[in-house]
Write a protein that binds this DNA or RNA. Structure first.
Length: 264
DNA sequence: ATGGCATATCCTATATGA
């Protein structure tokens, strides 16, 4: 295993966010970056700008909504999957997977699911079930695997400033949390929670009510490691400074640092 | 119960996000 930094970042519009994205890549230099919510068709993906910044990329876009990409520093991701199996009729661009720097990287944007109850929440849970089913083989793989992205799930009340005003939100529903727990129970390591078992750490602060200024956040962006990869987990964190920049995304990049040798 | 803000597109209005 190479010493690697892997990050996930919901950019909320890659064209509107390109200056912020490039500034972050320049400063933090992640080896691998999973992006969500491109909100861009494939032909408008800023491949030249990213290449000039030293990043190879693959992407799966869509007009207006969704869209995921995998970036690799001084390398080209080798695509292994586009879209989750289990529903040929699902047209959303929410899953992309590639081999990069010796790691199999799944980049996902799980459906938000609001309002609930309703068809959008049903779609969220159905998508989650497909992910759980597919993730089983990745979990048991002897190759290192990371499943990184915007899961749109607040796993526990430790992962939110105050659950009260979010109790009816799809991100906190028992069904959503139960799906996330079932995924973890396959044997995945929730990186940030593993490194910081008791701390309140957030990856998202909505644009309303000065939630960033008050640090009223949610932890919904996660990097899950399979047993072949988790022994190399060295450090994890959130690049919160990105959320403080002008015209910021409502998410901040979340990352892990992998050691070059086993630590546990 | 609503709206606060931000991004997208079929752009002075509407859908979506979380």
């Amino acid at each position: 295993m190479k010493k690697l930094r892997i990050a996930t970042f919901n950019v909320n519009g890659i064209r509107a966010r390109l200056p912020n994205l490039l500034a972050w890549l320049e400063r933090e230099k992640p080896d691998i970056a999973c992006l969500q919510e491109l909100k861009s068709v494939d032909s408008a993906f800023p491949v030249a700008e990213l290449e000039a910044a030293g990043y190879g990329a693959i992407w799966h876009g869509q007009a207006s909504w969704n869209g995921v990409a995998i970036l690799a520093r001084e390398a080209q991701p080798l695509e292994s999957r586009r879209g989750l199996p289990g529903d040929e009729g699902d047209s959303h661009s929410r899953y992309l997977e590639a081999a990069v720097h010796g790691v199999l990287v799944g980049c996902l944007y799980l459906p938000n699911g609001n309002p609930q109850p309703g068809p959008k929440f049903d779609y969220k849970l159905a998508w989650f079930e497909r992910l759980i089913r597919y993730a089983e083989s990745l979990q048991s793989s002897e190759h290192p695997v990371v499943l990184a992205g915007d899961y749109n799930v607040v796993p526990t009340d430790l992962d939110i400033y105050n659950p009260r005003s979010w109790l009816k939100d799809a991100l906190l529903q028992p069904e959503s949390r139960e799906c996330y727990q079932r995924l973890l129970d396959q044997g995945w390591t929730d990186s940030l929670r593993h490194v910081y078992p008791h701390d309140r750490l957030y990856t998202f602060w909505d644009y309303f009510r000065q939630h960033w200024q008050k640090n009223s956040g949610l932890r919904i962006d996660h990097l899950l490691l399979n047993p072949a990869l988790s022994p190399y987990l060295q450090e994890a964190g959130v690049d919160a400074w990105v959320r403080n920049e002008p015209r910021a995304s409502d998410h901040a990049p979340t990352w892990i640092q992998l050691s070059s040798r086993k630590l546990r």
